[in-house]
């Protein structure tokens, strides 16, 4: 493996890793607050991809507006999913919520299938994101740079929100003790809605970038990224925002690395994630940055 080949793989790995990371942050935030694995999270990526696609291709809306609209729409859908599906069973055992989450995921996928159809649609890439920079022998797609920059910016925004703002403080408090948060006079459902909106918006941003990288929009496109983001979140320590981003990067790099070392193994690419998850669950179940759980 020569130097420029390794760098080239690093670029690929970072790009995919950022996308996993973005999706994983939403997973981890919802888990942190509700102790719920929101399996519908991956499907939000699909929803935002369709929204972006319809905006640009069907309604001919300029791409910045379409993308912003897709993100807002997905954030609202995140709130709606919580209010419609999870809020009514907030006091039920966690397994009920988990099964509901799987149900919501199937619902979104099959709604997509029924309403839009299963044939993949080609996602248009605006010119700004096209092209690439040649650095020696390393070809860096402009999109990769965009993905890296946008991911870092969104991660920074998330960290500031969680650590420095009032609502972020309430999110951290809620993750520890929901009942006492209510006794503080805080409307917990507003905090939970905000968490869903933020997480879903990140998934939406990830979804749009995902589609520019792999431009086939179809109803089940969110399944594999969703599962991998879940692995990334567990890897980084579920409940921890920085950990989720880190887990995403590690997963992206590991996937690319395995194919780079042995191209014949490219068929096992998706297996890498689950292999990593088994290892982490056996050796360090709380993940890389996860804290020891109190109970």
């Amino acid at each position: 493996m020569d130097y420029s080949f390794a760098l080239q793989q690093l670029v690929y790995g970072l790009t995919v890793g950022c996308l996993y990371g973005l999706l994983a942050i939403g997973y981890t935030m919802v888990y942190g607050v509700l102790r719920l694995i929101n399996f519908a999270h991956g499907d939000l990526l699909m929803v935002s991809a369709y929204a972006g696609f319809f905006g640009i291709v069907i309604f001919q809306i300029p791409w910045p507006v379409s993308f912003a609209g897709a993100i807002i729409l997905t954030a609202l859908l995140g709130i709606l999913i919580d209010r419609g599906a999870y809020k009514p069973i907030r006091k039920s055992p966690r397994i009920n919520a988990l099964i509901t989450a799987i149900g919501v995921s199937f619902l979104l996928e099959n709604l997509g299938l029924v309403i839009i159809g299963g044939r993949p649609k080609s996602f248009p890439m605006p010119d700004v994101f096209a092209g690439s920079i040649l650095l020696g022998a390393v070809n860096i797609p402009a999109l990769s740079i965009w993905i890296l920059v946008i991911t870092l910016v969104l991660l920074a925004v998330c960290l500031v929100v969680v650590r420095k703002t009032r609502i972020g403080m309430a999110m951290r408090a809620l993750s520890r003790d929901m009942e006492t948060v209510m006794l503080m006079g805080v409307d917990k459902d507003r905090v939970i809605s905000f968490t869903f909106a933020l997480g879903s918006a990140l998934a939406a941003a990830g979804g749009i970038m995902w589609c520019m990288k792999y431009p086939a929009v179809e109803p089940f496109m969110g399944v594999i990224p969703g599962l991998k983001a879940f692995v990334a979140a567990v890897l980084g320590g579920i409940g921890n925002v920085t950990g989720a981003a880190l887990g995403g990067l590690i997963l992206g790099l590991a996937e690319v690395l395995i194919v780079a070392i042995e191209p014949d193994w490219s068929g096992y690419r998706d297996a890498v994630a689950f292999f990593l998850m088994i290892i982490i669950l056996l050796t360090r179940p709380t993940g890389i940055m996860g804290e020891q759980l109190p109970d």
């Binding site: 403080m169 006794l183 109190p294």
Partner: peptide, 30 residues
């Protein structure tokens, strides 16, 4: 509960229930 609290009827729960993962200042802020 949050509406009752905002009427000025404040409940300190059994076992204190401070937010251990927040700073003291943040706890007061809550």
């Amino acid at each position: 509960p949050h509406k009752i609290q905002r009427l000025g009827l404040v409940h300190i729960p059994e076992g204190r229930k401070v937010f251990a993962n927040l700073t003291i200042r943040e706890n007061l802020m809550m």
